[in-house]
Design a protein around this nucleic acid. Structure first.
Lengths: 164, 164
DNA sequence: AGATTCACTTGCGAAATACAAGTGAATAAT
DNA sequence: ATTATTCACTTGTATTTCGCAAGTGAATCT
């Protein structure tokens, strides 16, 4: 886990403080799942295609909750299900997420279609506005699909090599 | 380290790919030091106030170089000194860095003066343009000072929740 | 009632991390 | 010209975290 009780003293730099919160390989992926794929349950996070182990997932959810980035609420229709939801602090990570996505799509071979990325790069504010709207209205339809399950169409080139 | 030879298969999501490159507590701090503080040498990174150990630093520098985010060039005036410099791929992390900084300043108690942050939030493009200019022209004067060495001036005190 | 689902825990070996100390080459000081 | 110091790393070792498999208990389906 990033840290909880034992964080060693860092400089007061905001970048450093941010990284202390989610400077690991998993935390932001969980936030991504909630933010753009509408995931809300433990099970959904587990099946998001990155292969996180359940103990790590449980730990990260706890850490993110403790950090005030997400909150939990028991499901109304199924008592064993727990719903996770981003807080304002969490949804405010949207700009970070978007820039991460744009950079990754530009430099790493990904399965994301160019067209979609170009569109997001040109219309940052619009994407962010839509992301916030979805959060406010608890609209959990995916904003962005899973790239490993996308139908390949000719107008969206990509460096494909997907399975499943 | 993030990973090198043994990276397990991830989904094709660009966010995931980005995190695979620098999803740890140190990589982006090194990039920050180069980007906004003008650091260029091993010694400078070590003394940047975060307390990174030398073996981890050496490892991250190697990883970042292998990823094409930075490059090395031997110093002309001192043969034992090695200079590190961001590549285009590295400087393109500026938007990510800026959003990380804005988020961190907003939600974590940092030593960054509000005024400076507000200014950056309002003038994102200007900050980015200046960052790129400094990189192009190899201007290594700090764009942002070390927050732990700043004189505290009453008009720029921070750590109060400010939201508009 | 029994099977299955869900959200986690537990145990354990493997890998990554922090901390201290050391190496060797280049430069500075005496 | 020695000696000391700086610089960029290594090396060793103890500690922490991670990844994987399996298990637990409560709630829900059949």
């Amino acid at each position: 886990m990033p840290e909880k009780t034992k964080s060693r003293p860092r400089s007061g730099c905001p970048v450093s403080m941010s990284l202390e919160q989610f400077g690991d390989r998993w935390s932001l992926l969980i936030v991504r799942d909630m933010m753009v794929r509408g995931h809300r349950t433990f099970k959904e996070f587990q099946g998001s295609g990155e292969g996180i182990s359940s103990n790590i997932l449980a730990d990260r959810l706890k850490t993110l909750e403790a950090a005030g980035i997400l909150m939990t609420e028991p499901d109304e229709t199924d008592a064993r299900r727990m719903n996770y939801r981003l807080t304002q602090k969490g949804i405010d990570l949207a700009p970070v997420m978007l820039e991460l996505l744009i950079w990754g799509a530009k430099y790493e071979a990904t399965a994301a279609p160019c067209g979609l990325i170009d569109q997001m790069e040109k219309g940052r504010e619009q994407v962010l506005a839509e992301t916030r709207r979805r959060w406010r209205e608890r609209d959990s339809t995916p904003l962005i699909p899973r790239f490993d399950e996308m139908p390949q169409d000719t107008s969206t080139r990509s460096n494909e090599r997907r399975k499943k």
